[in-house]
Design a protein around this nucleic acid. Structure first.
Lengths: 345, 345
DNA sequence: ACGCGCGCTGATAGCGTTTTCAAGAGTGCT
DNA sequence: AGCACTCTTGAAAACGCTATCAGCGCGCGT
């Protein structure tokens, strides 16, 4: 009577116990076809008596529709990445899909292939690639053509289904904000670019060009706010620097701290802006002027696009969103005369 | 000759093209048994000619071993969560496993069951539960007994296989640091507790009791650093407050900012400590004294424990790690006389 | 020369579902 | 009373792989 064997119960066990056929059990499970109330009840009783759980593998094999998607990303815990994944997951969960995550650590072929083999060897309906960095770009390129794919990114590219946050225009607007305040030019500390050049960098350059301002050389890029601190210190030595556009808020925090290390205060001596609207950006002192990127929705839009492709519901291949500038306290007009930096301790 | 049909190629197609039997194809794929070089080569040629990818569903169904695990968590993008998941994923990937993520948004039965149904309906070898918060605790409780499970958490509990970070002792040590500096007592702003009381709170209380210090009432808990800022402002009004132990670094940042809003400087007027060693903690001004929690390794240890259970390799049920205190610049002896708070603007 | 063992190979039988498909039981209508 | 339907149900056939087992060819020891 009870589930005695050590093997997990199968549909056949349930059917036997309920005195019905296997397909009937399947029907009450899927709810697709009508089953008489009596049998339905008996089947449900048997299911819980045996604590039966259907085998996902068998289900997928027979129905040919995996209820999972994969996310491929170069990182999972950095703010933008984590938030995007959260958006994907929540949209997926609402539709009954589960999300598998695989990180690709470097853009080298060998590493990319190893990670992709893992992903493609799973039962998935499609994949969302976070094309924020070189590993993401590489992964996208090596994706088999028959797999439904959506890329999430900051710049539009051709040939792929994708959801983007239009970073370039937002960056342009942000740079113009600085220019409008009276700064002669704006220095730039980019995040490591995904391609030759980031959307943020492109927008920055575009704004400077349009304003006829000098385009200063880029600072070396890293994701780490600690390197950004070093860059901030270095920037302090350069009297031409009155405004700095940082690739993201964490870098802005590092730069602000580095400037402070040399006695320069933001925004009195140097204005600094970030990007993303990190949850701590508003809390920093000074509160950081930035661009709010809705990563959560980016993830949701990406999932929606993927679903459209997977079940032929929609043929949309592109979804864009324009992030908006958030002005806070880290920007001000340039000082009449900038304080001289304090020498290194 | 070429893959003409729209159906993806199966092993039978490969076998036919290579002029071998299906099991032989399986053998070259798995590498389990020896195959003559000639046939192996022909099979490999056919595989790439047809761009054949094995069906995960069929493979799992036949072999009964899913190469995926699930992670159940109340959140995925908060620092500790994200980092732990990253640790799990990287350990899993090294062993050829993929990680599925499902978040449980609230501890209510209905929500928990809905999420768990999603998880348990997938083909997984086991699950790792992030038992950091009420949703995690609830999920763990409703997990079916026949599923291999590991809980990750900050306090030891009984009956479950688990990897922990011993928060209580670290919290005790951190509180003692404050007491040793000469503070009469230490106020506490907890994170929302996973149970009746958090390990951090327990350690704090233990230290105060042991030192015979007064145990001040707790402040209301939230994950948001912005509420923490309000709490900081409120704390500024209370002249008894000279040291504050915050449930995590983000809350510490909020509190420091709130105190600053009222003209109190850290650590001159009030010492503040956090917990976790958030990547921005060292960059904050002042740099925050905290406890370094190795979430990455927590995730790795959790995965290792799960693997032990899944393939009977090991019978270990417990793995603990002692986080260590990191002293920075947000703590100092109490002031002779604390500055009077500036009134609300 | 004979038998034994080893290495490689293919038939065959599942794995646990979903999917036809056809049959049986009612129901309503003429 | 007979017929055409609709609604439920079960039998049987996939789904694409792995596991098991027996067979075959070959080299070696006696």
């Amino acid at each position: 009577m009870t589930a005695d064997s050590r093997r997990p119960a199968t549909m056949a066990d349930v059917a036997r116990m309920a005195g019905v056929s296997v397909p009937t059990v399947s029907r009450v499970l899927s709810g697709a076809a009508r089953v008489s109330p009596l049998k339905r009840e008996r089947v449900e009783a048997a299911i819980s008596a045996l604590s039966f759980r259907p085998s996902a593998a068998a289900r997928i094999l027979a129905s040919r529709q995996p209820m999972a998607i994969a996310v491929v990303a170069g990182d999972t815990s950095k703010y933008g990445y984590a938030e995007t994944i959260r958006g994907i997951e929540s949209a997926a969960r609402a539709e009954g899909y589960t999300v598998m995550i695989t990180v690709v650590e470097s853009p080298e072929d060998e590493e990319v292939d190893r990670a992709l083999r893992l992903v493609l060897t799973q039962a998935i309906a499609g994949v969302v690639v976070l094309k924020f960095d070189p590993p993401g770009v590489a992964a996208l390129r090596r994706m088999p053509p028959d797999m439904p794919v959506v890329a999430l990114s900051g710049v539009r590219s051709i040939g792929v289904r994708q959801a983007v946050l239009d970073e370039a225009s937002a960056a342009e607007e942000l740079t113009n904000h600085l220019l409008d305040l009276g700064h002669a030019t704006v220095h730039h500390v980019p995040v490591p670019p995904s391609r030759r050049e980031d959307g943020r960098t492109t927008g920055w350059r575009r704004a400077l060009r349009a304003a006829g301002a000098r385009v200063p050389p880029l600072e070396a890029a890293t994701w780490s706010p600690h390197t950004a601190r070093d860059i901030g210190r270095r920037l302090a030595e350069n009297p031409d620097v009155s405004a700095v556009f940082c690739g993201n808020d964490e870098i802005a925090m590092g730069v602000i701290r580095g400037l402070a290390d040399r006695g320069l205060v933001t925004p009195d001596d140097v204005s600094v802006v970030g990007f993303d609207d990190h949850p701590l950006a508003a809390l920093w002192s000074p509160a950081i002027t930035t661009v709010k990127q809705d990563f959560l929705r980016l993830g949701e839009r990406g999932f929606a696009l993927l679903m459209g492709a997977v079940n032929g519901t929609s043929t949309r291949r592109f979804s864009s969103d324009r992030p908006r500038v958030v002005i806070r306290s880290s920007t001000a007009p340039p000082p009449a005369r900038r304080a001289t930096p304090r020498p290194p301790a």
